[in-house]
Simulated assay, not measured.
Amino acid sequence: MNHFDVKAREWERRFFKRFASGTVETGLGRINLVESVSPKQVHFRTQHGKGSHGISRERVRAAIAFFLYRRTTMRKSLEQFNKFSSFLMGLLQIMFVEIAKIRITAKGLRLSLRGTRFTPAGFDRDVRGLELVRSWGQRGALQLLPFEGRQV
């Protein structure tokens, strides 16, 4: 198990301890009703559907690990975990409600973790460059230092 699998297990356990049943809103606003959460599966029903569907918690954990590793994911890329990718994206959105944001793009729905940063480099030598970085909302830039070690 790598770091992301361990974190995925922590997120999944923490979430399902306080979420046993309720509603999950998909990215486009449809409602899915979570009927029950067992140790092996999450059972849910769509708003207009009559039957119940299930997703194994292993697949949910794998989707969480994938999302934590990639930090951004499209709904289409969640189809590799389950065919109900819209429900899975809604579940991820509820799990990471404080640190993730869902966006509608031209290619589909995208869920992104906040905090992915662009670190500008090489702007430290120019005052106008630092002002530009500040205007972008960045708090700092990488400082390039001269190499003072021995050259072999």
Results as ranks from 00 to 15, higher is better:
70 R>S: 12
88 L>K: 05
77 S>P: 06
65 A>D: 01
23 T>C: 09
87 F>M: 01
107 K>I: 07
19 F>G: 01
33 L>F: 14
2 N>V: 03
46 T>K: 13
110 R>F: 08
90 G>S: 04
8 A>L: 01
116 T>P: 09
139 R>D: 13
83 K>F: 06
77 S>F: 08
115 G>C: 04
123 F>K: 03
152 V>Y: 15
45 R>I: 01
39 P>A: 05
43 H>Y: 14
94 I>D: 09
17 K>T: 15
2 N>K: 12
35 E>D: 15
74 M>K: 12
147 F>A: 03
46 T>I: 12
32 N>W: 09
84 F>E: 13
148 E>G: 09
3 H>G: 11
29 G>P: 01
67 F>T: 05
54 G>F: 10
4 F>M: 09
29 G>A: 07
113 L>F: 04
4 F>T: 12
21 S>P: 05
67 F>M: 07
28 L>A: 11
97 V>T: 10
100 A>V: 08
131 E>Q: 13
31 I>Y: 03
34 V>N: 00
29 G>T: 03
88 L>Q: 00
55 I>F: 02
96 F>T: 05
47 Q>W: 01
115 G>T: 01
92 L>P: 03
11 W>Q: 08
106 A>Y: 11
64 I>E: 01
81 F>M: 02
54 G>E: 14
34 V>M: 00
27 G>S: 04
137 G>T: 02
124 D>S: 10
87 F>D: 03
12 E>L: 11
51 G>N: 15
48 H>Q: 13
30 R>Q: 13
118 F>V: 12
18 R>A: 13
125 R>V: 02
123 F>W: 11
10 E>R: 12
88 L>H: 01
92 L>F: 08
8 A>C: 02
38 S>K: 06
39 P>W: 06
144 L>G: 06
19 F>K: 04
81 F>R: 00
132 L>P: 04
126 D>M: 10
87 F>H: 02
85 S>A: 12
98 E>H: 07
21 S>T: 14
43 H>N: 15
118 F>D: 04
57 R>N: 02
115 G>Q: 02
115 G>S: 00
43 H>Q: 07
49 G>F: 02
41 Q>Y: 15
148 E>C: 10
37 V>W: 08
140 G>D: 12
20 A>N: 11
93 Q>C: 09
97 V>Y: 12
44 F>Q: 06
71 R>I: 03
31 I>E: 00
14 R>G: 03
55 I>R: 05
143 Q>Y: 11
14 R>E: 15
127 V>T: 14
17 K>Q: 15
42 V>G: 03
11 W>L: 10
39 P>E: 14
67 F>S: 07
93 Q>I: 06
7 K>L: 14
106 A>I: 10
1 M>L: 02
135 S>P: 01
20 A>C: 08
103 R>P: 03
145 L>R: 10
